[in-house]
Amino acid sequence: MAKELWFAEYHDDNTRLGMRVTRELVAMQSEFQAIEIFETPTFGRVLTLDGLVMLTEKDEFIYHDMIIHVPMAVHPKVQNVLLIGGGDGGSLRELCRYPEIEQIDMVEIDSEVVNQCRRFLPQVAAAYDDPRLNLIFADGLKFVRHNTDKYDLIVIDSTDPFGPGESLFTKEFYGNCHRALRADGILVNQHESPYYPADAEEARLIYQRLTATFPLVRVYQAHIPCYPSGHWLFGFASKRWDPLQDFDAERWNARGLYTRYYNTDLHTGCFQLPTYVKELLESGVE
């Protein structure tokens, strides 16, 4: 029998997630990171950056539903969106389902991620031809610094705080985002996992920095099988709208959007955090 090829993703120093690989499609080093796309029997095609799983075909809908539909169901009228990162195109795809959005500025640092995903993950990179998209290949921190009072929604769909995404987890970045948002703007971000200690420490720091910058910060969660521990957090930082009090389920349901993970019952539930996660987040805040 031919030797099996396995991909082992780092979760912590002594823990890996293994997936059997049947075919490798992309293995390259871009200017910023190592990009790989391969096929697995269980998760379909898998995208990794610097050896870490960004998405799989089978479960990407969970992450993208949650990072986009939660804020979109809260803010009454999103017209201008800034999407930072998200080169795979999944967040863009979900945003493009909202007709009231007039412009989406998408700032991705690595054009190769976009190129390779358009080629090998077309179901995810499905909306790159949308006319509302203004795609910019640049450093997110630099881009946001030059904008004031412009966006209704900023989505930070980034890698981890090591590597090219590191500046997207800093206090200065959140401060610059605060200024780039309109008076009732919302910021949502990928908020790391609360489980493995190194990731949990990052989650704690993100929360600490967001609360130092925004008047209202809530954290919500989703179950994402391919991510370390499977338990993932998102941050909801807002200048005015509260994700529960200002959430209008009827309004969102009237849109008739079908989503496989998100629904308006889940919207309320996903903000209810386990005790240990609450303790973790609050431990860093005065």
Binding site: A8, Y10, D13, N14, V21, Q33, D50, P164
Partner: peptide
Amino acid sequence: MTESGKARPVPPERLRRILNGT
């Protein structure tokens, strides 16, 4: 990217991420 079968003190992908961009 194959399973090395042995845990390493510094996971190479982390190391690569740290070195990256210098």
